[in-house]
Design a protein around this nucleic acid. Structure first.
Lengths: 254, 254
DNA sequence: TAGCATTTTGCATGTTCCTGCGCTTTTTTG
DNA sequence: CAAAAAAGCGCAGGAACATGCAAAATGCTA
């Protein structure tokens, strides 16, 4: 095998997995680890990868402006992130639903935490594709424009074959008596199927979405495990939520 | 054997395998390694191949990293669109594969033509979401970063349940004898499943992708129905393609 | 066709580059 | 702090390379 050819294969493997160890490369390319080390050092000098002890990581590129054009998000929603990020552990499989708050979560996942992230929203898939430590599973199906996500039988069938550690969703409407609701039947169906597969469901959103209802109930309130909202929540609403055994995290208002 | 003739043979061998060593060439062409080295150096100067220690690699214009290409789109690829757009009829279900040429197609669909468009690329999904006359079906599965598309068993199973009128794909490598090829096994599997479900498969791409091969064959050449390429295609290549019964459309070079 | 210049080719030479091994040093991990 | 893993260093054999030169092939002109 030619040296230059081996360099190409190394970069290919690296882009594929986001990370690579010297030992793996030496084995798969059938050369000594010394040779691999020399390769990685050279490629590192050329700024084609990020050389680290034990192997290499993909070059962290700064966020292309391409993604900034997509929308003009509201940075105040970032305040919901911290409690959510603290729940994450290496190796988990999580769902990040569609919506602006969820998108912030996808964009701000810790760089050193390997995760499998499942989503039906193409915008979030794009955000996640830039993070080498994340494996991305895209839920297929008919695109449903109002929610910017896939819905329908195909989507539900695919969801049924995966088990999730945590599901993160934005709050559309939550009510202690009427549960977690949305405005569209198709969306409710697919969100219900998602929650069904999860060990733990976490909702994030401002307090004014609480004590509200919409036409279609996804699940009753007690199926939700954790709510992250901001200050301003009414005392009686807070009590009724906690009475259901739902963990409540309240972040400062913007 | 004439020098120019040998140069031609070297380039042919190179396109066929993507790589070639001086030793192999010296043996197969029955000349000394010194002569081969001189040949390779000259061809390297002419930018017809990538000269490396021990042999040569094919010149690769494409960047393996999809995100680099996104930031520098090449509008000249739009010239392939017109013949493709003329094939479309109202009510059809079509596939638009991933890739830059395909993305231009997705962005330039006629506004008055209702279509169902299927794709596994989230970028293309997003382009299509802005077009109200188009219903979008997203193919689910594991996201495969080098090709910016979904792959794997889930994707193939979902594809098997849909029938397509036309499949549009970019040419990665096409060879009359070795068929339609790509560099990755996962990609080949899902593209094969896609073509299997289609009445008609149309490839679009510049002429320098013809008479080339990559590691994995998707389908043999005769499974392709229509090729859209640009001027510059060699006469013998053109003949061999038409001999297979493949319709050929040649657009002006940029 | 003969004569001469140019190009191409193969060989011999010395040089550079690539690779694996043994060794020591540094880093990581429990 | 100790064991293990990874890295760095130098060396030697071999492969690939560049260079010079002479023989062979080719092209051009008289």
């Amino acid at each position: 095998m030619l040296l230059a050819e081996r360099h190409q294969l190394i970069l290919e493997q690296l882009n594929l997995h986001g990370r690579i160890t010297s030992v793996e490369l030496a084995k798969s390319l059938a050369v000594s680890e010394d040779t691999i080390r020399r390769d990685l050092n050279k490629l590192g000098e050329l700024k084609l990868l990020h050389r680290v002890h034990g192997g290499a990581l993909v070059m962290q590129e700064e966020t292309p402006d391409y993604f900034d054009r997509l929308n003009t998000p509201d940075p105040s929603k970032k305040r919901f992130l911290e409690p959510a990020l603290n729940m994450l552990e290496a190796g988990q499989t999580i769902v990040i639903d569609s919506g602006e708050t969820c998108r912030y979560l996808a964009q701000n996942l810790p760089a050193n935490l390997p995760l499998t992230v499942v989503t039906g929203c193409p915008l979030i898939v794009q955000d996640l594709m830039q993070q080498p430590q994340v494996q991305v599973i895209q839920i297929g199906g008919k695109m449903f424009k109002p929610a910017m996500r896939t819905v329908g039988h195909s989507a539900i069938e695919m969801l049924k074959q995966i088990r999730f550690d945590i599901v993160f969703m934005g709050i559309c409407a939550f009510h202690a008596k009427h549960g977690f609701c949305v405005s569209y039947l198709e969306e409710a169906e697919v969100l219900r199927a998602t929650i069904e597969q999860a060990d733990r469901t976490v909702l994030m959103g401002p307090h004014d979405k609480l004590d509200k209802t919409k036409t279609y109930q996804i699940v009753p309130a007690h199926k939700i495990n954790h709510l992250i909202t901001d200050k301003g929540i009414r005392q009686d609403v807070q009590s009724s939520i906690q009475a259901l055994g739902i963990e409540l995290t309240i972040v400062p208002s913007n």
